[in-house]
């Protein structure tokens, strides 16, 4: 059935999520519905106060079945793990699939910035990247989804009508033709289907 609904799924390698205001609630719904053994790594940029500490990672880790941790530099990107960008640092991906942090100036008024994560992840994972833009009050992520599409990746955007704050998803939709536009509540099922369609092939490629 998965093959019918999602034809020619490329080998997915990672999911990247960008979210701003309304993020805690949205991440609880989305990440909370992912299984402990979700076969892809999940990279998350949430706009957050520079002095927020690492409380968000702990809160989500307690709440979700899938493991959630704050990203550390040099972390190897592994499946079944959610990496949350630390407050006041950009999160990037290196070629060899390790995470990097940067204290470069804010991009799109944000640090961490969704654009920075999406652009670097798009270069590394190419067509194997799924980018998701959720609720938010600005336009961060719009340049990022353009990069994801340019590298052949998949873009999923929360239906602005469903978003607590619609600007960020609307900006993403204005930037590219998204592959899926849907309500937050429908996203976990889509992600599981995408992951299931890709998992066996990913294993075959590794063997």
């Amino acid at each position: 059935m998965a093959e019918q609904t999602i034809p020619q799924t490329p080998n997915l390698r990672a999911v990247a999520i960008g979210v701003s205001s309304g993020g805690v609630r949205a991440l609880k719904i989305l990440l909370g519905a992912l299984p402990e053994d979700f076969p892809l790594p999940v990279l998350v940029v949430q706009h957050i106060s520079p002095e927020a500490g690492n409380g968000m990672a702990r809160l989500l880790d307690n709440y979700c079945a899938i493991r959630v941790k704050e990203a550390d530099e040099q972390d190897e990107v592994r499946p079944a793990t959610v990496y949350l960008a630390p407050p006041n640092y950009h999160l990037l991906v290196e070629r060899e699939g390790r995470l990097a942090l940067s204290a470069d100036p804010p991009v799109s008024f944000a640090r961490p910035s969704v654009d920075v994560l999406f652009e670097s992840a798009a270069e590394v994972f190419g067509a194997g990247l799924v980018g998701i833009v959720l609720t938010g009050a600005n336009f961060d992520g719009a340049a990022g989804v353009r990069a994801i599409k340019a590298h052949g990746g998949l873009v999923i955007v929360q239906d602005p009508a469903d978003a607590e704050t619609p600007q960020m998803p609307a900006a993403a939709l204005a930037a590219v033709k998204a592959d899926h536009v849907l309500a937050l509540a429908a996203m976990p099922a889509l992600l599981r289907r995408l992951a299931a369609a890709t998992a066996p092939r990913a294993e075959a490629a590794d063997a």
Binding site: L92, A100, S102, E123
Partner: peptide
């Protein structure tokens, strides 16, 4: 220098 950041700059 780590590639991702320097490439961005």
């Amino acid at each position: 220098y780590a590639a991702a950041s320097i490439k961005r700059r």
